[in-house]
């Protein structure tokens, strides 16, 4: 409507106006859904993070910044000095560290997998992609318990290794950070493979030949020719893996044995047994902010790529 009508076209302008109006109406359901289903609840979480915790649950309508201060600083329970909340920082750092490691592991496994699939002939490619998506049909909890059955003391891996005589005592993999890493890498691997596949599939393998023709060795071809072109795929995959890993709740709970919390578990503690909803809310918002920073980073990297 604000657009200037081209030349004499009063009619076109009217047409344009109705088109805009119709588009608005058509997108209304989506807008309402976003507002009611996403922004609305988020707003409640945001408001709650500035309230005082209620006695048994919920919040008291008294505005305060306590929940936000509590994330970073805590009063020592015994000598009452205000200090950095090192327990919280440890939990945050563990989450970020495990998520980064998960991302690296999925790249290490995803890149060869995607390369393998992308270099198959058409029919076979569809079949391999289909295999990659199969885990998505199963509930996350079920997949996590499948991993549990593999790695627990009496599980498949330990039984095999013992039968083969390679080990005498079962390996304690369960309830360690390694278990959490195995679980998360397994669960999020498809999210890495698919964008990598999309990137490699478009790749023109004549470029590799050209590289060899120009006396590049294998390593140089990988580093100078293949990687720069599949980089957007790696970045997209990394975001897709890193973001859910950061908020992971089920996997660390089931496989990690709950001895060491990740952010997701810590937030749950605040809404459950800790009964400190404001702190849980501020932690959730902080997690969201971290994810947003990661996404902004992605947008910047990918736009720079396309400008090039």
């Amino acid at each position: 409507m604000t657009r200037k009508p081209p030349e004499p076209g009063v009619l076109e302008a009217r047409l344009e106006a109705t088109r805009v109006k119709r588009n608005w109406l058509l997108s209304l359901p989506a807008l309402v859904l976003l507002l009611v289903g996403a922004s609305g609840p988020l707003l409640i979480v945001l408001v709650y993070s500035f309230m005082e915790p209620g006695d048994y649950s919920g919040v008291v309508w008294k505005p305060t910044f306590d929940a936000w201060v509590q994330i970073f600083f805590s009063r020592d329970i015994f000598d009452d000095t205000l200090g950095l909340a090192d327990a919280h920082l440890t939990i945050f750092w563990r989450s970020v560290r495990l998520s980064l490691l998960t991302t690296l592991i999925t790249i290490a496994f995803g890149l060869p997998t995607a390369y393998f699939i992308a270099t198959r002939p058409g029919r076979a490619r569809v079949f391999w992609l289909f295999l990659i998506t199969i885990p998505f049909w199963t509930n996350l909890l079920v997949r996590t318990f499948a991993i549990l059955e593999m790695i627990r003391s009496e599980g498949l891996i330990n039984t095999w290794l013992q039968n083969l005589g390679l080990i005498s005592e079962p390996l304690q993999i369960m309830y360690t950070d390694t278990a959490v890493l195995i679980g998360m890498a397994y669960v999020y691997l498809p999210l890495m493979v698919l964008p990598l596949y999309a990137a490699i599939e478009r790749f023109d393998f004549r470029l590799v030949e050209a590289g060899y023709d120009l006396y590049a060795n294998r390593w140089q071809v990988l580093r100078r020719v293949i990687l720069p072109i599949v980089k957007p795929g790696i970045v997209a995959g990394s975001i897709l893996v890193f973001v859910p890993s950061l908020g992971a709740y089920v996997t660390p709970r089931v496989l990690g044995g709950g001895k060491n919390m990740m952010i997701g578990n810590f937030i749950e503690l605040q809404f459950g047994q800790g009964r400190n909803w404001p702190l849980g809310s501020s932690l959730s918002i902080l997690l969201l902010l971290i994810v947003m920073v990661a996404l902004l980073f992605y947008v910047r990297v990918s736009t720079r790529e396309s400008e090039r």
Binding site: S74, I77, D86, A87, H88, T90, I91, G258, K259, N260, M261, N265, F266, L269, Q273, G274, R275, N276
Partner: peptide, 14 residues
Amino acid sequence: ARDIYTAIWTELQK
């Protein structure tokens, strides 16, 4: 009391 317990608990599970 619960606030102190939650703090101890967080330290335990950190």
